[in-house]
Design a protein around this nucleic acid. Sequence first.
DNA 1: CGTCGCCTTGAATCATGTCAACTACAGTGG
DNA 2: CCACTGTAGTTGACATGATTCAAGGCGACG
Lengths: 247, 247
Amino acid sequence: MTRSPVSSAAERRLLSVTRLTAEEGVALQALAGKCQQADTGNLIIEQGQPVTGMALIEDGWAIRYRDLENGRRQIMDFVLPGDLCDPCVLIAERCDFSVAAITPLTYSLISLPRLMELVQRMPRIALLLWWEEAAEADRLRSHLAAVGRMSAYERIAQLLIELWSRLTAIHRATDHSFICPITQEMIADATGLSTIHVNRVLRRMEREHLIRREGKAYTFIDVAHLQQIAHAPMALQPGRLLRNRGR
Amino acid sequence: MTRSPVSSAAERRLLSVTRLTAEEGVALQALAGKCQQADTGNLIIEQGQPVTGMALIEDGWAIRYRDLENGRRQIMDFVLPGDLCDPCVLIAERCDFSVAAITPLTYSLISLPRLMELVQRMPRIALLLWWEEAAEADRLRSHLAAVGRMSAYERIAQLLIELWSRLTAIHRATDHSFICPITQEMIADATGLSTIHVNRVLRRMEREHLIRREGKAYTFIDVAHLQQIAHAPMALQPGRLLRNRGR
DNA sequence: CGTCGCCTTGAATCATGTCAACTACAGTGG
DNA sequence: CCACTGTAGTTGACATGATTCAAGGCGACG
C-alpha cells in the first residue's frame, strides 16, 4: 500500500483519537476539492433523501436531528468543526435524519463516487469511517442512557460537559469557557425536555454557582462538581486494528 | 478476489437485508469453529472489559445495556438470533456496554485475531460488519427519538412493533403472534419508564383491544393501529457499496 | 407449602409540561 | 430617530404524565 498525504492525515487522525484537527481537515478537504458555505438553517442532509456525499465540517455548528409528527423534534447530536457528517453514506441508501447548520457553516463535500474510489484504493479509509460511525454510536448510547434514565439536571450537565470536552479537543474552548451557539430550545430537543424546563435548570445551575452565562458564552465555575452530576463517561478509544498501524 | 462459501453467505445476507438466516449463521459459525452456550443472566460482553471476539447469536435472546449509578439501567436494544453481537470489536478497544443473555443462549464466538485475519483476506466482510454497525446506529436513533420525544404509550407500541418485525424477519413470529421472553422491568429499562407504568400501559392496550397477552406470548389484534401509534419508521436499507456486488 | 420472581392495582407525590405573560435585544424600514 | 417585528429568554400558576409507595395475587419451583 502506497503512502499519500491523505493517508497520513487520516492516520494522524487515528493517532490523536480526537476529532480531526484543522490541519487534517484541510488535507482531506484538499482531496475533496469542493468547499462550500451554508447559512444558519440550511440543510446539509435531508431526512429520507438519497445521500450524495459526505461532509467534513470545517467551521461552524450543525445539528443532526429527526423530525417527528406534531412538530416534535429529537436532536441526536451536535456536529462540530472537524466532524465527518455522515460516514453512513457508504453503507446506507438514505439517511434517517437531517443535518442542519445552526451557524454559518464552512464544509467540504466529498462526493460519493470519489469517496468510493478512494475507499477501494485505501481500505484504511474505510476503517476510519467505520471508526467514526462507531464513535457516533457510542455517543448515541450515552445520550440514550441520559435521556432514558437521568433527571433533567443530570442530562443538561452531561450535555454541557460533552460539548465542552469536544470543543476542548479541537481547541475551541479556552480554560473553562466556550461559546455555545445553541438555543435553549435546542438543548430541550436534545435532552428530551421542554424549553421552559431547560431554562429553569440552567438558572438553577447559575444560582448554585456551577456555571455562568453571558449570551452564548458559557463558563464552568465548578467543573468537578458538574462532571460528577453528569456522571461523565469516557469517550470511545480505538482498538487494535486502528492502533497497530504496521504495513 | 476469490469466492468462498463464507463470502457468498455474507453476500446473501446483504441481499436479503435482513438479519442472518439460520443457514448463513451456520456457515459463519463453521468459520468461527467454537459454539457456546450461556444461561439466563450470563454476561457475553462486560462493560469496560477488553473485548476478545465477536458473537453471532444462534438462538435465544440477549440485551445490550448500560448500568448507571443508583442501580439505574438503560437497555440499548435487544439482541435476537442472527444478530452479530458487537461488530465494534474491530474498531474499539473496549465496549461501553454489557450484553447479557435473558434466555438460554446458543452463540458462536469468533475470536478477534481470527476475525482480523478474515477481514484482511476479505475486505467485504468489514463492510458487512460496518453495515451491521450502521444498522445498530439507526436503531439507536429511533430509540433515542422515542425515549426523548414520545409518550409512554407510543414508546411501548414502538418497541412491540420493532420486536415483532425483527422476529418476523427471522421467521420467529407467526402471523401476528410472537413469544417475547422479556419482563416488564426490561421494557421499562428500554423505554425509560418505571416498571409500574409499563404495566399500566400494557393493560390499557389490552383494554383497548390492541394486543392480547398470555404469559410471554403477545398477539397483535390491531397491527395497523399499533403501527400508527408507534409512528413506525422503516428500517435501514443498504446502499450502493453493498448493493452492487460486481467484481 | 414457603419463597421468590413477576405481575397488578390504588393512592399519594413529584418532576416536568403547558399556558400565559412579560423582558430584552437585534434587525428593519420609515 | 422611532415604531415595528421577531426571536430568545424568563417567570409564575397550574395541569398532568409518570414515579413511588404499599399491598396483594399468581404461578413456578425446591
